[in-house]
Design a protein around this nucleic acid. Structure first.
Length: 423
RNA sequence: GGAGGAAUGGCAGAGUGGUCGAUUGCGGCAGUCUUGAAAACUGUUGAACUGAAAGGUUCCAGGGGUUCGAAUCCCUUUUCCUCCGCCA
C-alpha cells in the first residue's frame, strides 16, 4: 500500500510511477486526495464536538459533587444533542476512511528509477546472460521423461492422491529434494540469514500484510472452516513476523531465511507451461527475507542478487538475470530481478527466482516502523528473494546434465545429495 | 472438546465509574560526577489523526453496549494460563 503521505506530497511522482506500471485507473489518485479533504473536515468537526463533551462531563462531575443537580441536568440535555451529532459524524468519518482505504489498496507500488519502461516480458532488460547456451544431442529428453526413466517423480501418483500439480518425489528424487533444500539453507545461513521454520497456514491479516490479500486472493488455497490460507511463499509468514512491530534502527538489517512448501492455485494455467515441473500447485522453496533501513535497501537488494547468482554458479546452470519492466513486475514490488535458467531440452528459459525490493509497500500495510536518528517514525523497507525454488532447478539440472550413463550432479551438491550421478 | 482464571505503555506491575494516557520499578535516552566506564543523582521516555504553533481528538487485547463521564460496569470475539479429556 502506498503511503498516503507520498500521494499528498509527491502526487506527480506517484502518477508517473503508476503509468510506468501500466496502471490505468489513474483517476483513483485524485479521488483519494478528495476523500482526504473530506475526512479532515469531518474529523475536525467531530473532534471539536468531542472536546465540548469532555469539558461538559467535567462540569457535570463538579456540579454533582456540589449538589447542584438541576444545573447538571441542564448541561446533560445539551450534551445529548452534541452526542447525536457526534454519532452522525462518526459514521460519516468511518465511511470516508473505508472508502479511502478501499481505493488506496488498489494502487500498486511505485517502481524505482531503475525499472525499464515496457509492458511485456519482451521489454524486460537482460542485465546478464551466459555467454553460450549449451547444446544437447538430438536424443536429449525433457525432464518429465528423465524423472520417469530414473524413477525420481511420480506425477500420476500425485494425481491419484491429490490432483494435477502435486507430484510425488520418489526414492532418489526425494533425496535430491532434501539435498537441495539443505544446500540452499546452508548457503543462506552462511550469508547471515537466520533460519526460520514458520507455519504453512496464515491468517488473513498476514495475507494482507505482504499484499496477497485482497489483490491475489484467488491464487491462494483457502481453508475456509478456519479462515486460514496456505502460504504461496515463505515470504508471507516470515515478513509478517514483524507486522505491528516498531524496530530499533540498530536492528537493521534483519535477515531471515526459511524452507517451506509453497501452495499456489495457478488457476487458468495450461499447456506446455504446466508440463512436468514447470508449474506446480505445491513446490519447495527456500526464501530469503530482509528488513532494511530505507537508505540501504537498494544496496541490500544487490547483495541478495549476488547471493542468488552465487547459487546458480555453484549449480553450474546456464542462467540470465532480468530487470523486470514496469508492466511485468508484481503489484507490490518497486524493483525486481528475475533469474532464469536455461532448460536445454525444452529450449526455453525457466524462472527460478524473483528478488525484489518492496520499499515501504508492505511495511505500510504491516505498520513495521522504526525511529530514525532524528526521532521520527519511518516505515522500514522489505526485500525478499527465492534462493531458490526447487522444481525448475531440478528440471534444468536433469535436462542439462543428462548423459548416456546417467545424470551428473554438480560438485557443490554432492555431499548434500549423497550422490554424484543419478542412474 | 469441557470447567475456571487472566489480558494495562519495551518489560514487570498498580489502578475497580470523574484532571488516568494512566502510580511505581526495570529498561532506553540526555545530563551531573569520572581520565573513561560502572555506581549514584537529576531530567526525560508510547502511538495514530489534526494543526504553522499552542493545542485538540482517539487508543489500557478486538468489537459492541450502559453512563453526562469507562482502563474500571455489561455483552461478545480472540489470545494466554490452570485443571480435565483427546492426541503426534
Amino acid at each position: 500500500m502506498i503511503a498516503l503521505n507520498l500521494i499528498r506530497n509527491e502526487k506527480e511522482r506517484v502518477l508517473q510511477g503508476l503509468q510506468k506500471k501500466h496502471f490505468t485507473a489513474i483517476h483513483l489518485v485524485d479521488e483519494i486526495l478528495t476523500l482526504d479533504e473530506v475526512r479532515k473536515t469531518t474529523q475536525k468537526q467531530m473532534d471539536d464536538l468531542l472536546a465540548q463533551q469532555n469539558v461538559a462531563a467535567k462540569q457535570i462531575g463538579g456540579l454533582m459533587k456540589e449538589g447542584k443537580k438541576a444545573e447538571a441536568e441542564a448541561i446533560k440535555l445539551q450534551v445529548a444533542e452534541w452526542k447525536a451529532s457526534t454519532e452522525t459524524l462518526k459514521t460519516e468519518l468511518a465511511q470516508t476512511e473505508q472508502k479511502q482505504f478501499d481505493l488506496l489498496v488498489l494502487l500498486p507500488n511505485i517502481p524505482s528509477q531503475l525499472v525499464p519502461n515496457g509492458r511485456t516480458p519482451e521489454d524486460n532488460e537482460v542485465i546478464y546472460t551466459v555467454p553460450e547456451l549449451p547444446t544437447l544431442s538430438s536424443t536429449a529428453k525433457p525432464h518429465w521423461e528423465l524423472t520417469e526413466q530414473y524413477g525420481l517423480i511420480d506425477f500420476e501418483l500425485g494425481v491419484k492422491l491429490t490432483g494435477a500439480g502435486f507430484p510425488v518425489y520418489t526414492n532418489k528424487g526425494a533425496r535430491l529434494q532434501r539435498g537441495l533444500i539443505n544446500f540452499f539453507l546452508d548457503r543462506a545461513t552462511a550469508a547471515g540469514y537466520v533460519e526460520m521454520m514458520p507455519p504453512l497456514l496464515v491468517n488473513a491479516d498476514s495475507g494482507f500484510g505482504t499484499g496477497q490479500l485482497p489483490d491475489k486472493e484467488g491464487q491462494m488455497y483457502h481453508a475456509t472452516v478456519d479462515d486460514f490460507y496456505l502460504i504461496p511463499t515463505a515470504e508471507v509468514p516470515l515478513t509478517n513476523i514483524y507486522r505491528d512491530v516498531i524496530l530499533k534502527e540498530e536492528q537493521f538489517p534483519i535477515k531471515m531465511c526459511g524452507y517451506t512448501p509453497c501452495f499456489r492455485r495457478e488457476a487458468g494455467s495450461y499447456g506446455k507451461d504446466v508440463r512436468g515441473l514447470n508449474r506446480l500447485h505445491q513446490f519447495d522453496k527456500v526464501e530469503i527475507v530482509q528488513f532494511e533501513h530505507p537508505d540501504k535497501s537498494y544496496n541490500t537488494l544487490e547483495t541478495m542478487v549476488k547471493h542468488v547468482e552465487g547459487l546458480l554458479k555453484e549449480l553450474e546452470l546456464p542462467y540470465r538475470i532480468l530487470r523486470l519492466c514496469g508492466g511485468d513486475m508484481s503489484f507490490a514490488s518497486a524493483l525486481t530481478y528475475d533469474f532464469e535458467v536455461w532448460s536445454a531440452a525444452q529450449q526455453r528459459w525457466l524462472e527460478v527466482s524473483s528478488t525484489s525490493n518492496f520499499e515501504s509497500f508492505q511495511t505500510n500495510r504491516m505498520k513495521t516502523r522504526f525511529k530514525d536518528s532524528s526521532g521520527k517514525m519511518q516505515l522500514a523497507h522489505t526485500l525478499n528473494g527465492s534462493a531458490l525454488a526447487l522444481p525448475r532447478i531440478v528440471a534444468a539440472l536433469l535436462e542439462n546434465n543428462q548423459t548416456a550413463s546417467g545424470i551428473r550432479l554438480p560438485k557443490a551438491i554432492h555431499s548434500f545429495v549423497g550422490m554424484e550421478i543419478i542412474n
